[in-house]
Amino acid sequence: MAEVRFGKAVNLALADALEQDPAVFLFGEDIATAGGPFGATRGLYEQFGDRVRDTPISEAALANAAVGAALSGLKPVLEIMFMDFMTLTMDALVNQAAKARYMFGGQASVPMVVRTPHGGGISAGPQHSQCLEAWFAHVPGLKVVCPSNPADAYGLLRSAIADPDPVIFVENKALYAMKGELPEPREIIPLGKARLVRTGKDATVVCYGAAVHTVEKAASQLAEQGLEIEVLDLRSIQPWDEAAVLASLMRTHRLLIVHEAVEAFGVGAEIAARIGDIGFDELDAPILRVAAPFVPVPFAPSLEKAYQPDAAAVMAAVHKLCA
């Protein structure tokens, strides 16, 4: 095992993909000489030259270029500097990339990846901190991934780049500096498979991205109080591992979903609705959610801290579930 930071794991995945497949290339704003806004592409321009390209500030143009390149047989990996700016890519991703396989009767695919950071924690305010993954998970033809640790960041990104269809790869800004183990040889992780983080008997908590660490902190404190929660890291949001969630519910009979994104119309709402349908007989309590309130992300550090779901909110929800 090697210990690396989350951002370095992303960097290694990109480097290995570039090394092993000449069709792969990277482009985005400030990703070449500057190494990206969070350093995830640092050193790749020096190693791979023009296959790592800086671009003008035009997310719509970049996304359309990526679709065209993918349809032409290349495997573009596009970086959008903040997930908030994915709003400018919507036509290319939703109407073109997601629909191409269907529109061409299965004769064409769009093997492209869009890497983008989401989440708060750096007081970047309402236009640079949003978690918009539920938008893309709603679109047939798009896959959405959100890793929580360096090993998953590496393994899932390698799978995303190899996938024949467009993948939105979401990286939480608060995780870039986090250290974790990366196995040697480095493992490629299939999309759509959840990770069992912690076993428990009293409740299942489903989460993804940075929320996994919030839930782990809550789990440790709950254990001291005699409550053992089972923690399931989704890793892939679309497709999500329905079977793993249902299997865990059959062991605990209570379900809580936690994510940093706004609660209303979110990933948690979809999981709750689906499990309420196929897992109703296993439920001993109503399904609960812990997520952000329906307001823009605040600038002020104190308000941002209050806005983001924390371990105390998770613990309170688990106590309510188990009452």
Rank of each mutant, 00 (worst) to 15 (best):
N149W: 00
P37E: 08
P309S: 11
L71Q: 08
S72V: 00
E46G: 04
V4H: 04
V144Q: 01
V297P: 07
R274Y: 11
R195H: 13
K75W: 12
A162N: 05
G266N: 02
A313R: 13
A100C: 10
D50V: 07
D281N: 14
T199A: 12
Y154G: 00
A264H: 14
I189M: 14
R51E: 10
K179Q: 12
A97V: 07
P164V: 00
P298V: 12
R158L: 04
A34C: 10
N149L: 03
T41Q: 01
R195K: 14
A98P: 06
Y307L: 11
L26G: 02
E242R: 14
L62E: 06
P140R: 07
H253D: 05
M250V: 11
A17T: 05
V297W: 06
L303V: 14
A247Y: 04
Y45W: 13
P239E: 09
S302D: 15
L182G: 05
I275D: 00
Y208L: 07
L303T: 12
L142P: 00
S109M: 08
L14D: 03
F280C: 09
V67W: 04
A15S: 15
V110K: 00
A151Y: 03
L74R: 11
A69K: 01
I189E: 07
A273Y: 05
F48C: 05
S109A: 14
G36W: 01
V212Y: 02
V77Y: 02
A244E: 08
D163H: 03
I189R: 15
Q107F: 13
A70C: 10
T116M: 09
A61P: 13
F136T: 06
G105Q: 13
A292R: 01
T199F: 11
R198E: 14
P296T: 00
A92S: 15
P111E: 02
V258D: 03
D277W: 05
P296G: 11
G43D: 09
E228N: 12
T55I: 06
E133H: 14
R274G: 08
K179I: 07
S220E: 15
A162C: 05
E184H: 06
A2L: 14
A13F: 03
A70M: 03
V110G: 00
D16Y: 03
G36L: 02
D16I: 04
E228F: 07
